[in-house]
């Protein structure tokens, strides 16, 4: 595809996004407005992540895309193909081989390194949006560091349910200043948000970019007597037997029988390749798929 520029976006657009990325790294957790472009894929399907990936990508990159932790979900396949066509970059499903990883809803199980960049697709970047629909108002709240509304919401959860009733997109406080939406990752992933890799969050439709530089201090909001808890299904993975990875639940028969398996397909596959076998799994064979 030679009709389009490297990584699709024109250079002027990339410069605009790159400037926004630098400011987002300088002010961790603050949502930098940017003039998001109309992409050849729908808003809500990763246009923010795609624009960020396109702006940071170099020819030597090895690119990985996951959706729900899996490389083979259709939208992940579609985005991977987009960059194969427009940037001619090498792609991979192996987390450790990737230099840029675009994700929707998960952080890989394998700890990321300082040489990697994690790009998140973000639907609603504003953590206060569902408490206050007006952008004018939420911008003021961030400016004044007025997060009372959020604390009230979490407190009301506790009085209604006896626990904080937020299971994903669990809000965090960054470096003691901005409250940030970590995108709709399960709260199981929240403790990983402080990591050696650069993390950049792109919200295309909402025209915002925000970031976490490596080792940024990220704290999940909680109360002393109701501390934050990273939870997952209390099972081992049926395929690889892992007891510490985030699990998907599958309905496997007409009687409603369940099984649990790793949401991170690369992590699960790598374990099985090393000989780990779960209760419902088979030893991994070459070309079994």
């Amino acid at each position: 595809m030679t009709d389009y520029n490297f990584a699709y976006l024109d250079e002027q657009t990339k410069r605009m996004i790159r400037r926004a990325i630098l400011k987002s790294l300088a002010i961790p957790g603050y949502q930098v407005p940017f003039a998001s472009r109309e992409m050849p894929m729908p808003y809500g399907w990763g246009t923010g992540g795609v624009q960020v990936s396109a702006a940071v990508m170099i020819q030597e990159d090895v690119f990985k895309v996951i959706d729900q932790g899996a490389d083979d979900t259709t939208n992940a396949v579609s985005i991977r193909r987009f960059f194969e066509r427009t940037a001619d970059v090498e792609t991979t499903e192996t987390t450790t081989d990737a230099t840029v990883i675009q994700t929707r809803h998960r952080i890989p199980e394998e700890p990321l390194t300082a040489d990697q960049i994690l790009v998140y697709q973000v639907p609603i970047p504003e953590p206060l949006r569902f408490l206050e629909p007006s952008e004018v108002e939420t911008r003021k709240m961030h400016a004044l560091e007025d997060y009372g509304l959020m604390h009230v919401k979490l407190y009301e959860d506790i009085s209604a349910h006896g626990a904080i009733a937020t299971a994903y997109a669990y809000p965090v406080e960054v470096e003691g200043r901005y409250v940030m939406d970590p995108s709709p990752i399960p709260k199981f992933d929240n403790p990983k948000l402080s990591m050696p890799a650069i993390q950049i969050f792109g919200a295309g439709r909402e025209q915002r970019i925000y970031a976490l530089p490596p080792y940024t201090q990220v704290v999940s909001l909680d109360f002393e007597d109701y501390p934050f808890e990273a939870t997952k299904a209390d099972h081992p993975c049926g395929l690889c037997g892992s007891t510490d990875s985030y699990l998907d639940e599958l309905i496997v028969d007409d009687t409603g029988g369940r099984m649990f398996m790793c949401s991170d397909t690369d992590y699960c596959g790598a374990r099985r390749a090393k000989g780990h076998v779960g209760a419902e799994g088979t030893p991994l064979q070459e070309n079994a798929v």
């Binding site: 808003y43 929707r104 809803h105 009733a165």
Partner: peptide, 29 residues
């Protein structure tokens, strides 16, 4: 309508990771 339809229709994409976390939460509660 391009913003609206994209975001509206994106809810048909897989959301099973988030749904799973809700499932666990509601079972616990």
């Amino acid at each position: 309508n391009i913003q609206a339809t994209g975001f509206l229709e994106h809810i048909k994409l897989p959301h099973y990771v988030d749904f799973q976390s809700e499932l666990e939460l509601i079972r616990k509660l």
